[in-house]
Each structure stands twice: as structure tokens, then as C-alpha cells.
């Protein structure tokens, strides 16, 4: 199908005896914000890690923009336009927030075999990086070392870094988890804007955010996608009610 930016077919991932992804098929359409919800341990992070090339599936294929990327490295997928944010932040903690984003800008510009010129005063890196920080509301914290930043700020920084590579598909793993109410609202606002620019796969436990933002929602339970549909459809789905929503998660 031409309008599927990402297509996952019969994906399976086993950890020993545990099947974390179980014959999972899924489609993300160009331009949509596709939410993936499911109880703890449903396999959401495992799915994202496979989409991003950090975990190799045991079976199944992943197509991105029509190309089979199942065997590609993470770096190669990023070059094709994928980006992810991490549920457990993966940042360069000794570096400043600006360094973190500037390095992503640098990676996006191409190779980094420049051995002489000072990278930290290179406007080709710092200017886009500062704009990126401003987008997530961190412009005032550019020179703060990441390890000195609050959890919420680190989450926002994750977003800014992912955006700096100008992705065609953004994989977000619980960007709202652990945020305060104001930060949460700001992130929802930002995602609403980002929706206009890029395709997003959003894993999130915050159901208000999910129903407010998502064009379509897939429900994951025990590694399987039990249904995909609009917010309305998912809310009214009998299986979902029993398997997930009914368990008091809403």
C-alpha cells in the first residue's frame, strides 16, 4: 500500500521462553500520529527497539517507505529517516544540552571526520541546535550539563535530539512519563504541532494525551496487536475493554 510509511509483518521476538512480540503486524500511514497502547510488559518498548534496529527480531519483516529495513543497522535506519526517543533516557550526561543536540545536528549533516575546527563554536551546528532546544522550551538551559538537569528536562531533551535528525518517522517511547502537569501540557502542544510535520508512532500510558493526539490507536497485549482503530473505535471495542481498558487503566 503506497500510503503506509511503516509496515510491520508477522514480527516475533522471543526472550528465552517469553514471547515479547508475538506475530505482530501493524501499519503506520504517512502523516498520521499512530499511538500504541498496552499494559506494562505488553512489548511496546521491545517493538520500538526492533523498529529502530537495536533488537533483532526472530521472525517477520519491517518495511520503511517501501524498503525492507529488517536487517539494517540502527545508524542506517536513522539515515533513512527514523528517530526514536527513549523511555529510559539515553543521553550524553557529561555534555551540555546544547552539545547533545548539536551532535545530532552534526550527525545529520554527514560524517564527523573534522579534526581541527572547534565544533562548539561552529554556527552550522549551534544555531540549529539552539532552535531545537527552544522548541522544547530548553533555550535557557543550553549550557547546563545534562546530569544537572531534572528528569522532565531530560525527557524534553530526548525529544529535541530526535527532532534534530529531521526524521520522517518519529518513534516516541513514553515522552510524557514522569513529567509534571505543565511539562505534560507543553509536550502535548508540541506533539500537536509536530503532527503537521512528520509521522509519529507514539507509545504512551497517558490516555488523555493519547485520545487527544492520536489519529489511530493500536492496542498491544502480550506482544500481539489485538486491534487498530480510531480513538472512538478502540474505546468501544469489546476485546479492548476486557483485555486492557476494563482493568482500570482508564
Amino acid at each position: 500500500m503506497p500510503d503506509a510509511l511503516l509496515r510491520v509483518d508477522h514480527l516475533t521476538k522471543r526472550f528465552g521462553g517469553l514471547t515479547a512480540t508475538n506475530d505482530l503486524s501493524l501499519e503506520v500511514r504517512t502523516g498520521e500520529l499512530h499511538a500504541v497502547i498496552g499494559p506494562n510488559g505488553a512489548g511496546k518498548t521491545t517493538l520500538i527497539s526492533q523498529l529502530f534496529g537495536e533488537l533483532a527480531p526472530n521472525a517477520g519483516t519491517i518495511h520503511f517507505a517501501g524498503e525492507d529495513i529488517t536487517a539494517l543497522s540502527t545508524a542506517a535506519r536513522v539515515r533513512r529517516g527514523l528517530a526514536r526517543s527513549f523511555q529510559i533516557t539515553q543521553l550524553l550526561f557529561d555534555y551540555s544540552a546544547l552539545d547533545n543536540v548539536a551532535l545530532a545536528v552534526q550527525a545529520h549533516l554527514g560524517h564527523s571526520y573534522h579534526f581541527w575546527a572547534d565544533a562548539r563554536s561552529d554556527r552550522a551546528l549551534t544555531e540549529p541546535a539552539l532552535l531545537g532546544l527552544a522548541r522544547v522550551g530548553l533555550e535557557g538551559r543550553a549550557h547546563v550539563a545534562v546530569k544537572e538537569m531534572s528528569h522532565g528536562e531530560q525527557k524534553q531533551l530526548e525529544l529535541a535530539i530526535a527532532l534534530a535528525t529531521r526524521p520522517r518517522l518519529l518513534l516516541l517511547d513514553e515522552p510524557m512519563a514522569g513529567l509534571g502537569t505543565t511539562e505534560c501540557a507543553a509536550t502535548i502542544d508540541l506533539l500537536r504541532k509536530l503532527k503537521q510535520e512528520t509521522t509519529i508512532l507514539l507509545v504512551e500510558h497517558d490516555m488523555d494525551a493519547v485520545f487527544a493526539l492520536a489519529d489511530r490507536i493500536s492496542v498491544l497485549v502480550d506482544g500481539q496487536c489485538i486491534t487498530t482503530g480510531t480513538g472512538e473505535e478502540v474505546r468501544n471495542n469489546e476485546t479492548v475493554r476486557i483485555a486492557y481498558l476494563g482493568e482500570g487503566n482508564v
Binding site: T74, V78, Q90, F93, D94, Q106, A107
Partner: peptide, 25 residues
Amino acid sequence: RLVGSRFGLVLGGIRQNERRLAAIG
């Protein structure tokens, strides 16, 4: 010069978190 260059920045990043570097390509 080397450690302050783009290459140096990548190298320091490798020490801190290789997974992050892969994630930016």
C-alpha cells in the same frame, strides 16, 4: 584541536553512551 573538533565530540560521546550515538545515526 582534535578533542574540541567534531571528531572529538563524537569520541567523547562514545565514552558516555554508544547507544545514543547510534540513535542519531
